Simulated scan of single mutants.
Amino acid sequence: MAAATIAIGVARSRRGRKLIIALLVFGCVWLIVLVGVLGALFGLQAPQGSGYEPSRTALADIPHAYLELYQQAGARYGVDPWILAAIGHIETNHGRLAAPGVRSGVNAFGCCAGPMQFSIVGSPSTWDAYGVDGNNDGRKSPYDPQDAIPAAARYLKASGAPADYHRAIFAYNHAEWYVADVLAQAEIYRGAAAGSTNTSPAERATVRELLDNRRLIFTVGQRADLRAGGFDARLLSTLAWIGERRSIVVTSLRADHSPGTNHEAGRAFDIGAVDGEVCRGGRRGACADLVRELAAVTGPTRSTELIYCWDPDPADPGMFARGDHCDHIHWGMDA
Rank of each mutant, 00 (worst) to 15 (best):
T5I: 14
I8W: 11
I8N: 05
G16S: 13
L19F: 14
I21V: 15
A22K: 04
L24I: 15
V33N: 01
V37L: 09
L41I: 13
A46V: 10
P47W: 03
E68Y: 06
Q72R: 13
G88M: 08
H89R: 15
E91R: 11
H94R: 08
R96I: 11
V102P: 02
N107Q: 08
C112K: 04
Q117R: 11
V121S: 10
D128G: 04
V132M: 05
Y143H: 00
D144T: 05
D144W: 01
P150K: 01
L156D: 10
A158Y: 06
A161H: 07
D164G: 13
A171S: 13
A180S: 08
A184S: 11
A186I: 03
G195K: 03
E203A: 09
R208I: 07
L210D: 00
L210M: 02
L211I: 03
Q222P: 11
A224S: 11
R227P: 05
R227W: 01
R234M: 12
W241L: 06
G243Y: 04
R245S: 15
S252Q: 11
E277V: 10
V278S: 08
R284T: 13
D289V: 04
S303L: 12
E305R: 13
E305Y: 14
P317K: 01
R322K: 15
H330M: 06
G332A: 15
